[in-house]
Amino acid sequence: MPSVLLTESLALELGDRTGNSIPAHEPWPQDVKLFQPYEVEQILLPDNANCLAVQTFLKMCGLDFEVEQRSNAEYMSPSGRVPFIKCGAFLIAELDPIISFVNNKGISLSDKMDNAQKADMRAYMSLVNTVLANAELYITWCDKTTLQEVTKPRFGSVLPWPLNHVIVWQKRSQVVKKLGVLGWAHKTLDEVYQEVENCCNALSVRLGNQPYFFGDRPTELDALVFGHLFTILTTPLPNNRFASIVRGYSNLIDLCKLVEKEYFERTAES
């Protein structure tokens, strides 16, 4: 009897997987939507970088999607972070889960790469995710001038008084707590800029003279780096030292220009 039960439960699990989990061979649907906060008046530097990275990744894969801007995108997201995509009945939030979701459909930017390159790419992506993303959070929420002049007005723009003050304060304490756990909260601004400098240096060395990080074809790493660097370069902040550090690396700037030309200007024309 136990063996029969086991087979049954296995069959059930398999059935579940095919029934509920990501359908492997289903084509990319037409009505995929990417949800993010309002770009002009609401979105903040770290969120904008993540949203742009996901958009770039989907465009690099040649997948159609529509951007939907919602003031409550962050609350709608199943993980509490933006962006998230709605693909049929599935909701997938943030870049990494979206990458694996797309991979499950048989679409990948890195399938031609060998294992060593893949591991290399993963390492650099994790570098960007830890250093640049945390530096963006630090500038946005811990730097007093940026917090007062940029973060508060933008984050509170979609909220009625007095919630705009209360929720900004709530969100700030969440971010500070998170940075504290990661050991970033007690850094000085100069230390943060130094980290960014180191990260950009490492990326610049890896890129060298190639058009993309791994040769002629863009990868997930290119999408991620573009998302962060382009946002850093184009977001006006009271203190633009962040952008000027990035500007010091001409090959990274070239990468941004290339990705923008290939994937964003073309769609703007059509």
């Binding site: 409550n72 962050e74 609350y75 709608m76 209360v166």
Partner: peptide, 24 residues
């Protein structure tokens, strides 16, 4: 009243999800 509406599960209907977030 400050109301914070959030989804109870991942499988909540999208029409409910659209209405989540704080409101006053």
């Amino acid at each position: 009243a400050w109301r914070d509406v959030s989804c109870l599960t991942r499988s909540a209907a999208f029409q409910v999800r659209e209405q989540t977030g704080p409101s006053l």
